[in-house]
Design a protein around this nucleic acid. Structure first.
Length: 270
DNA sequence: ACCGGAGCCTGTTAGC
DNA sequence: TGCTAACAGGCTCCGG
């Protein structure tokens, strides 16, 4: 399930393969894969454009093209992007394929069909409502406090709200709360200053660890080259239900919170 | 304004 | 063992 570290890993892999390449054609075998505009308009607007820069914003992959167009991808649950030889046999779930000017193709494959392609002239239309990037310097404990004070619902689903903080998903929310020793059921606006400091530190620590380990290959996620990340071997609580906490020895529990599986240690998270 | 739940999807897993 | 039903969850939309 690609979250900030997984998407960052994908961006870092794709960047040297795509920057400077020109899109010659687009093929699509499932029209709803393209969220905006229509397939016809996408093809008309994208033909002949060159990748100038590729970056990540929240869980979006943002490709700046010549002509002030921006191509974006969201992998959602099972999306996979890779640059491969045009001779490689196609996967039946490769819904949208971009032919490049070097006998390679950028293929967006997604069995679950949650992922989407966007082409926009103004990225703020799509990204304007997102919360701050948790690894940038302007994300301070004070900013975290300001963002969380507005919400009285549980801290775990609040961390998943992309308008509050951008990029955190189910794995890293559970991991950050464990790192910070905070129960996921705590109301977001109930955290005291010392807890906010720990949570700020915990969020950054687990996200940086996830990037360093090139993502968590839990369920479907693999890197663009098809190999696994390593973060699944470094989680403290996620899907460790029934195992002992490395920090205090109590048994990890699993509850449903905000409709999401939530893993925590009842011994050291309060 | 805020919040919880449904819906989107299909491969994988759990349970009978 | 083999089948079916439940589950997985990021995000948007809708209704309370």
């Amino acid at each position: 399930m690609p979250e900030l570290p997984e998407v960052e890993t994908v961006v870092r892999a794709l960047r040297p393969q795509l920057v400077g390449r020109t899109i010659q054609a687009v093929r699509n075998r499932w029209p709803r894969h393209i969220a905006t505009p229509t397939l016809d308009e996408l093809q008309a607007r994208i033909h002949g454009r060159t990748f100038q820069a590729i970056e990540r914003r929240a869980k979006y992959i943002v490709c700046h093209l010549t002509g002030k167009e921006t191509l974006l991808f969201h992998l959602k649950m099972t999306g996979h992007l890779a640059v491969v030889s045009a001779l490689l046999p196609e996967n039946k779930h490769s819904h949208t394929i971009f032919s490049l000017n070097n006998d390679e193709e950028l293929r967006f494959t997604d069995p679950r069909k949650f992922g989407r392609v966007y082409l926009v002239a103004n990225i703020d239309d799509l990204l304007g409502g997102l919360g701050p990037e948790p690894l940038l310097s302007d994300f301070t404990p004070q900013l975290l406090r300001t963002r969380l004070q507005k919400h009285k619902r549980a801290i775990k689903p609040t961390l998943l709200d992309q308008t509050v903080i951008a990029g955190i998903g189910n794995i890293y929310a559970d991991e950050a709360l464990h790192e910070a020793r905070i129960l996921p059921t705590r109301p977001a606006n109930s955290l005291i200053l010392s807890e906010l400091d720990r949570l700020h530190h915990g969020i950054q620590k687990v996200l940086r660890l996830g990037i360093e380990r090139e993502g968590a290959s839990i369920s479907q996620y693999v890197k663009p080259d098809g190999t696994k990340g390593d973060m699944q071997n470094a989680v403290a609580v996620f899907r460790r239900t029934g195992d002992v906490c490395y920090r205090c020895g109590r048994v990890i529990e699993r509850i449903i919170l905000g409709g999401r599986a939530t893993h925590f240690c009842p011994g050291c998270q309060v």
